[in-house]
């Protein structure tokens, strides 16, 4: 799961011309640490939904990667 999440995150960062992150850390904040704006978050949700079949933002706002990983089980 971590590997696939890492690919999605780096795809989004790559599209914005930002450096790849090396590894997934549960304490990382999508907004503060990864610099995701609302468009990036929407993209992240859609891509995660495609990969895992789970809409992680469906029941509210998520920020930490640990929250995302918990929803993905």
């Amino acid at each position: 799961m971590e590997e696939r999440l890492l690919i999605i995150i780096n795809e989004i960062r790559n599209d914005k011309g930002e450096e790849h992150v090396a590894e997934i850390k549960p304490e990382l904040s999508l907004r503060k640490d990864l610099g995701f704006d609302s468009m990036d978050l929407a993209t992240f949700t859609a891509r995660v939904d495609e990969e895992f079949g789970v809409d992680v933002f469906e029941t509210g706002i998520v920020d930490l990667l640990s929250d995302v990983m918990e929803k993905l089980g």
Binding site: M39, A42, T45, A46
Partner: peptide
Amino acid sequence: GKKNSVLGSVLE
């Protein structure tokens, strides 16, 4: 438009 819980829709 793809239905999206963050923005209503995202473009795909």
